[in-house]
Design a protein around this nucleic acid. Sequence first.
DNA 1: GACATTATCGATCGATCGTTCTATTTTCAT
DNA 2: ATGAAAATAGAACGATCGATCGATAATGTC
Lengths: 192, 192
Amino acid sequence: MTKKKYRREELLEIAIDLFAQNGYVGTSIRDIAKAIDRSVSNVYHYFENKEELWLAILEYSVQGLPEKLRSVAHGEGEPLDRFKELLRVHLNRSIMHRRETKIFFIDEERLSPKGKLINKQIQKEILDIYVEQLRILQSHKLLRTKNLKILAFNILATINWFLRWYDPEGDMSKEEVFDEIIGFVLHGMCSE
Amino acid sequence: MTKKKYRREELLEIAIDLFAQNGYVGTSIRDIAKAIDRSVSNVYHYFENKEELWLAILEYSVQGLPEKLRSVAHGEGEPLDRFKELLRVHLNRSIMHRRETKIFFIDEERLSPKGKLINKQIQKEILDIYVEQLRILQSHKLLRTKNLKILAFNILATINWFLRWYDPEGDMSKEEVFDEIIGFVLHGMCSE
DNA sequence: GACATTATCGATCGATCGTTCTATTTTCAT
DNA sequence: ATGAAAATAGAACGATCGATCGATAATGTC
């Protein structure tokens, strides 16, 4: 039982690596099988087809993100502090699931209708969480704009883009970078 | 003479459409040929191979972006006004070359070393332009952070992400959205 | 130890991929 | 009008793709 899970998750791990590096279309079942030194049929033994494998990865990692964000958003404390915590948790989760998060944003247009739907749905869930939190901040007169949706998009832009440039081996610590990003989201680039 | 250019650019236009929609790996030469109702060999008559076609698209559209941004950045006026204009021109250019800009950011990892190099180079050029302008603003004590590179990344995040969510058919005009984004970049989400 | 289940493999399928080849038509300068 | 050059088409190549098949090996249950 645990053995079965284990061998299956080994496959998932390898697939995550390859998908993150070469994308959905750019990764073949043979690539995955070769990388883990198994046969092609072995992959099909654990996953019905290529897209189910892809979706299993999403389920394996990204799918839990909305729930996690919600639990933080609905926590205690000052609204603005909660929002900062939301950003921090989101950033942290992105970096902990770096590969899966990358996968989530590449080749999204190349999935089947079912896959596309799931992808879009998760993205919408996350957007809604942010819009909801922004609405609370707005009711406290803490925001400088009333276009909550665009504001949420801009915030998510900053969060989702950072995986593209952040280098874990760089000279800045994770926390420093997070503070920098959160500062930007809250106050932008200007000093006054 | 113009005929040759014309037929070649017809091909480019179709290729841009398909690449933007299905990505580099997701678009076959046959797809392109079929879409424009020509033969596969005809495509190879105008472009040496698939990647040269891809690079021709970059040259055709995106390659001119750094030059354009530089000309705006080196223009006249107050530094902060110049920077706003820089953002506006960049956003406008993105939306005018919507498909090509999308192409520029998808499948970048799946190119040959040569293609990857060109892609990275253009991105670095653009980043440098922003860092340079931010340095000027910093010397005028207009910035709230000293991490210019991270700040530039965050700004570019907002600009480059907006193509993912902006709907030209939506109820907000282009200019309204631009103002919203520029406001976010300058002052973030908070009112004070 | 017998037996059903699970895991794994190699071979193979038809489809499609990027690319090349040869041949034919069209265009254009002379 | 003629001949070179450019444009186009169709067939084919070897490689690879996702997926399936039947057979074999490993595992767990009774």
